[in-house]
Computed example of a mutant assay.
Amino acid sequence: MMSTIIIGFVYNLLQMGFSIFTVVSGNRVLSGDGGYLFDFFGDKIISYFLISGSSAGFGLTVELRRGAPSNSFTDKAHASASLLLIGFLFTAIASTFTSFALSKKTNS
């Protein structure tokens, strides 16, 4: 779960850097279809990482709570898995928007 959070954070920092560069300079870092393809496949890959981290976290909390009552660790793990699930939902939505931009770019 921690590696999923770190990978997602690094990807978001990279995307923010690309966006800031585009706003400041007016040019995309990856020109042509490459930038749109990077956004599309990056969103897809990160969303799969997020959902796998979320499901692993939920599985961990279920197993840990089975033998013992809920404690601070399992509550935090459950909250973290919930945030990963929310992150997956937003990344999946962003991936849908990116697919629309990619199809517009390749058709024109």
Rank of each mutant, 00 (worst) to 15 (best):
G34Y: 13
I93A: 04
F49E: 02
D43R: 08
T98E: 10
I46V: 10
S47C: 08
Y36M: 11
L85R: 11
M16K: 09
L14E: 08
S31G: 13
F38H: 08
Q15L: 09
L102D: 08
L102F: 14
R66K: 15
L84E: 00
V29T: 11
I93G: 02
N71P: 01
S55I: 04
L84V: 01
V24D: 10
I45F: 10
S82C: 12
L30T: 06
I45N: 00
S70Q: 10
I5W: 06
H78L: 03
V24N: 07
F97Y: 13
I7N: 06
D43I: 01
I93F: 09
S72K: 15
I93Q: 09
L13T: 01
E63G: 08
F18L: 05
F49D: 02
T4D: 04
S80P: 12
A77G: 12
I46H: 05
L50P: 02
G57I: 00
S95R: 09
L84C: 02
N71T: 00
A101F: 11
E63H: 13
G34C: 13
T61I: 03
F90L: 12
F9V: 14
M1Y: 08
F100D: 14
A81K: 01
I51C: 06
F40Y: 12
A79D: 03
F49R: 07
E63I: 04
R66A: 10
R28Q: 14
T96C: 09
A101V: 11
F49T: 03
L85V: 11
S82R: 09
S47E: 08
A92I: 01
G32F: 11
S31T: 12
S103H: 14
T74F: 05
Y11V: 07
A77E: 11
G67I: 04
V62I: 08
K104Y: 00
S31F: 13
N71E: 00
F41Q: 04
V10G: 12
F9D: 15
Y36V: 07
F100H: 14
A94V: 14
R65T: 01
S54I: 04
P69L: 07
M1V: 12
G42W: 00
F90M: 11
G59P: 06
I5M: 10
S52K: 04
K104A: 02
F21L: 11
V29K: 03
F97N: 12
F49H: 03
S70I: 05
F58W: 07
F9T: 15
R66I: 08
I86S: 15
N107R: 10
L30M: 05
I46A: 07
Y36S: 13
S95A: 13
M2S: 14
L64Y: 04
D75L: 04
G34Q: 15
F21Q: 04
S95Q: 13
A56G: 06
S108T: 05
I5N: 07
K104W: 02
R28V: 06
A56P: 10
M1A: 08
L60Q: 14
L30E: 11
I6E: 07
L102V: 15
I20D: 05
G67V: 07
G87Y: 02
K105S: 10
A77Y: 14
L60S: 09
F38S: 12
I7C: 10
L84T: 04
I46M: 14
G35I: 09
A68Q: 05
S103W: 10
G53L: 05
P69D: 07
